[in-house]
Amino acid sequence: MTAREPHTDTAASTAPSDPAPRPHASAEEVQAARSDTKLAQVLYHDWEAETYDDKWSISYDQRCIDYARGRFDAVAGSEALPYGRALELGCGTGFFLLNLMQSGVAATGSVTDLSPGMVKVALRNAENLGLDVDGRVADAETIPYEDDTFDLVVGHAVLHHIPDVEQSLREVLRVLKPGGRFVFAGEPTTVGNFYARWLGRLTWEATTRTTRLPFLADWRRPQQELDESSRAAALEAVVDLHTFDPTELENIAVAAGADDVQAKTEEFAAALLGWPVRTFEAAVPAEKLGWGWARFAFNGWKSLSWLDENVLHHVVPRGYFYNVMITGTKPDTGAL
């Protein structure tokens, strides 16, 4: 093994040494980030932090509690619940861990993210929900907690942002207790990412072009907001580093040292609806989309997710689905 810097545990807030969020990146910073992926991660996610929950329709009510718990149970099951202490890696606004904690998956939690803005929002969300959660700004390749600290490590849409996924999973296994489990969900498959990106681009172009027409002018966002969204999209292309074939992702986890590795995929028909819907929502003023639109989007996603799970999973190869989830455990050598 190579020598490590000492890992330190933390109190229930960001440490004084943690950097402050930078919510607005300049054009010069965006240009510099094109050749520095970790700077890009910080700039993009600090930029998105305060509006991220709205952008992705994230909430901490029963709708998203059920969604998060459904992803967890689909790949890991519910037999070992509840876990004691859980860590969310690349926490964003805390969506996955906080909703899992509300569903009874874990008693206490910790959040880490490379983005100070995301850690700030995640801790604020945890406080508002009355959950026992601490947090740190941290690199997923060098997790700042001691060996054998956590019973569970989770993440949602994070692995594809990490330069060295295998090294990060080694760190996950290091901070897990023997027999502890990791669950990562919401990762893009290679095929799914291809069609999702094209659907998003086509929807953006069609919407922004159409709303230039005079009689649709009130459906057009201010040009400044559209320009900022385009700059954010430019950074997004830099921060999304990987897509995954499910079998290759399983092999990475095994190479990192995990046991009981299993990947599952979801969202084929649901993704074909979801990506145009989300892109359209980002391109028009929020006040134009009322409760009827939200009900259409959510019920449409639910119906197509049912079709995916009950029909298409039996006939479509798993690599064609948009999302891949993976779980595994830390070897429990003491049990031998």
Rank of each mutant, 00 (worst) to 15 (best):
A76R: 01
S57Y: 05
Y60V: 08
P16N: 04
D36A: 13
D73Q: 10
D73N: 03
A76M: 03
D36P: 04
S59I: 03
L39G: 07
R63C: 01
R22V: 13
R85N: 02
E5I: 03
W47P: 00
K38P: 10
H24G: 02
E48L: 09
E50R: 00
T2H: 14
D61G: 11
Y67E: 11
T37I: 12
S35C: 04
E5C: 02
A76V: 04
D66I: 00
D61Q: 10
T8R: 13
R4Q: 04
A12G: 02
P19F: 10
G77E: 05
S78Q: 11
A33T: 02
D66M: 01
A27V: 11
A32C: 01
A33Q: 02
S26W: 11
D53I: 06
L43M: 04
V30A: 11
A86G: 05
T37W: 10
Y60D: 04
D73T: 11
A32S: 09
D46N: 11
E5R: 09
W56H: 13
H7S: 13
I65A: 07
P21R: 15
D46C: 06
D53W: 10
D73C: 02
A40C: 09
A68I: 05
A49T: 03
F72Y: 14
T10D: 03
T51Q: 12
Y52C: 06
K55W: 13
L81Q: 03
R22W: 01
S17D: 13
P19N: 07
L81Y: 11
W56I: 03
T10L: 06
P6T: 00
V75L: 13
V75E: 14
L81R: 02
R4F: 00
A27D: 05
A76K: 00
D61F: 09
V42C: 13
H7R: 12
Y52K: 02
D18A: 15
E5Q: 08
S35D: 03
C64S: 14
E79C: 06
A33F: 08
D61T: 06
